[in-house]
Amino acid sequence: MVPAIAEDKCTGCGRCLEVCPPRAITLEGGKARVEEEFCEECGFCAPACPEGAIEIPWPIYCSS
């Protein structure tokens, strides 16, 4: 499981890249993409997204 990024909402601002501890998020063609191999499912990216484009498919309660 990795966070789901809604491409239509993502503006490519890069905030999620900044907060991702294992550097699992990259920008590709101006859109954020999560590389499954690197993702540790901490959920930090979702609250960092100003567009609400990232959905965490598991419950979180610790925002960074």
Partner: peptide, 8 residues
Amino acid sequence: LYYHEPIM
């Protein structure tokens, strides 16, 4: 545990 993930 605080991320609701299995411990590592």
